[in-house]
């Protein structure tokens, strides 16, 4: 079995062309930078995050976060004095004092003699009033704010009634108002204080 030399030459030439092409291709692939390497089709959907389908009926563009306002004693105001609970407890251990206050739009806390019930506990009432007359609130709520100081109580020693409070009308409705620290009393644990509506 012999082949004609011309046929062998043709086959060799064809093989040489294919081999040359493969070599050139291999060299080109080898020189491709790493970042440009192909991802296998089956891996594409695992590696590439598919963005969500956009809607076209309308559009909502995210705006800035609306920061809440806090209704609390404004400690930045000048002359704010704390109430020393330990001192009150030492001097008047059985004190039972109720004060009904008004908070105006500027955050000032106002009350007069008729608003204070301190039968038998004048000294305690005076101590409490002296401190509270210096208190002022951030001007975000207004209305009636009532305090009940019950020093000997085994339950809550201070109850704050907020049911008479409302938002200051100039603050837009969409701005949330959060109730913060409604007193400035040193030495009274938070678990001894109840903030609610009515007592």
């Amino acid at each position: 079995m012999t082949k004609r030399p011309s046929q062998i030459l043709w086959a060799a030439a064809a093989l040489a062309v294919v081999l040359a092409f493969l070599i050139i291709r291999a060299v080109r692939l080898w020189r491709i930078p790493y970042e440009s390497l192909t991802i296998a089709p089956e891996d594409q959907y695992e590696r590439i995050e598919i963005p969500p389908r956009p809607g076209v009926r309308g559009l909502v563009i995210t705006g800035p976060r609306i920061m809440p306002l806090y209704f609390a004693v404004d400690l930045a105001r000048a002359g704010i004095q704390p109430l020393d609970w330990a001192d009150l407890k030492n001097r008047c251990p059985g004190a039972d004092v109720r004060i009904k206050c008004r908070v105006d739009e500027k955050g000032n806390l106002r009350f007069n003699k008729e608003d204070v019930r301190m039968e038998g506990f004048t000294e305690a009432g005076t101590i409490i009033q002296n401190a509270m007359r210096t208190w002022a609130y951030r001007p975000v709520k207004r209305g009636t704010l009532s305090f009940w100081f019950n020093v000997p109580s085994m339950g809550k020693k201070l109850k704050i009634d907020m049911q008479g409070m409302e938002r200051v009308p100039s603050i837009p409705e969409h701005v949330p108002i959060i109730d913060g620290q409604l007193h400035y009393i040193l030495g009274l644990p938070a678990q001894d204080i109840e903030v609610g509506s009515g007592f």
Binding site: I32, S36, T38, I48, P51, G55, V56, V60, I61, T62
Partner: peptide
């Protein structure tokens, strides 16, 4: 195909839908 830029091949453009769209 190998020479096509990676970014061009990896971009998946989803079709929109008739709802309210949201974006930042």
């Amino acid at each position: 195909v190998i020479r096509t830029p990676l970014e061009e091949r990896s971009l998946y453009i989803p079709t929109p839908e008739n709802t309210l769209g949201r974006t930042q």
